[in-house]
Write a protein that binds this DNA or RNA. Sequence first.
DNA 1: GCCGTTTTCGGCCCGACTGTTTTCAGTCG
Length: 566
Amino acid sequence: MKNHLVAKILNDVSYALEILDVEFKPRAYARAARSVENLSKPIEDIYAEGGKKALDNIPGVGESIANKIEEIIKTRSLKYRNKLIRKIGFDFTELMNIEGLGPKMIKKLHEELGVKSLADLDKAAKEGRIRSLEGFGEKTEKKIMDNVEFARVKNKRVLLSTAFNEAQEVKKELIPFAEKVEVAGSIRRMKETIGDIDILAVAKRGKHEEIIKKFARLGKVVMEGETKIRIRLDSGLNCDLRIIELDSFGSALQYFTGSKDHSIELRKIAMKKGLKLSEYGLFKNDKKIAGRNEEEVYKKLGMQCVPPELRENIGEVELAQKNKIPELINYDVIKGDLQMHTKYSDGGNSVEEMVLKCKNLGYEYVGISDHAGNLKIANSMGAKEVSKQRKEIQNLNIKGIKVLQGAEVNILADGSLDVPDKLLKEFDFVIAAVHSKFNMARDEMTKRLIKAIKNPYVIILAHPTGRKVLRKESYDADWKEVFKAAKEHGVLLEINAHPERLDLPDSLINQAVKMNCALIINTDSHSVDNLEYMKFGIGQARRGGCTRKAVANALSFTKFLELLKK
DNA sequence: GCCGTTTTCGGCCCGACTGTTTTCAGTCG
Ligand SMILES: Nc1nc2c(ncn2[C@H]2C[C@H](O)[C@@H](COP(=O)(O)OP(=O)(O)OP(=O)(O)O)O2)c(=O)[nH]1
Ligand SMILES: [Mg+2]
Ligand SMILES: [Mg+2]
Ligand SMILES: [Zn+2]
């Protein structure tokens, strides 16, 4: 996937143009770079399928940038970028990563001190030469030294679950001092990876200073002002706290939830209506006309309130203006979890423990789906264990929840399953998934998946793309064809809710939703704790525009059983 | 360079924090 490379190069261009004091173009390139970075579909696929016109459809990408993206896809580099770097006289791109060091400072450091690299910068700072520059001082010099060190060990983005759970911890600490406190930013949008934690709070009367003090003790203070404070947590994750008054809470939540480009879009709409939108509220001639809650802000802008998971400025604003935002699946409508592993294969808990936890989560039914077949790494079950597990399930004495016995079966390279039909027919449902031989030509992989879909025992195609968040890219396949086959043969496409998978990813969920495919959200749990991952899967479903009726495990048990008959 | 229910030309989000500024530019959210 070349998205990151394309975004990086466009961002280099933006920075270069800013160093060269060009107006507005830097913004255009930065905007396009963000758009590309946020695509979850590989940009080379978009280009292969729709050519330059498809690139032009990416928000913030026009004719000129589309041409440049084409060049990057074909050659992995961009002549225009290199030309700009030659014009500036040195490759500044490694200096871009230093926090607090922007294009203007980089330019000045180069012109006055000949700084061309991180090493030069470090040396200049240590020799005390930076403080002598006009506009720079001792503190700037110290900050540069600190951040050069930090840039080397720079914390990257983390999994949604990691940040989500840490954010809950921080939130809990703040509750005693807060009238209101809400996790915002990319976590509220349920993005699959997170850069930092953003928290918005209204302090209880007279507790403004206390809440800031409390927050400061939760980590190392990086920056502190009247209304904003940032700490670095022990985990290395940054956490921003913004304090606001109650009557601005809604507009502030809108601002702090973002995304940046979604907010800019809203602010432009406000401008066109002769209004002004900021975190403090929506204003008409300095008079506040909305701000206490988000719904009000969107309403006064003449649109539906957009669910946080859709706020990426990829068309949702227009939908909201036309009153066409879909009724997204809610977080509380899931009635069963159909992929989980127990000690029978590679899970850590017993069947009983898993079922009990599912009952506590309020589910009506649950499917145990240990690995079956020859897959050695996952300690797969053979026929004997399958029958033993079946009896154990039958003898479970847990009231109020129905338990199905399923199996997760490996799809072999030729698309056949790793378990003979004789055994497959013993299960209440069969999950098929690829766990080996990922490197396959697109056509072959498509055929392989479709053959598995056509197997009459298969009910669910699990983690369909095989990607691992931050670790492994999806294998290549013609997803449109795969989805078409799934629909035709009554196979449910899984939204794997495990935070390391989130597979299908949001953009493919959207594609499946548009094709009217049936989906199912499963946690793929390997322990009772993992069963809590369901919310992350629902979050991705919502990001993909998924409604309740498209999701099989939002159905009652009777309705769900009908699906299994197919 | 992008973009269009007032525009195909003429705009481009708005505000907090920092440092060294005596009035603001740079950087970031
Ligand atoms: N209006 C406006 N809002 C911004 C801007 N930059 C950031 N924000 C808002 C929207 C963001 O969601 C929110 C938090 O900023 P972050 O840098 O933490 O971004 P976000 O959480 O979206 O993504 P992340 O996963 O942290 O990289 O602040 C900006 O330039 N203008
Ligand atoms: Mg953030
Ligand atoms: Mg932030
Ligand atoms: Zn699996």
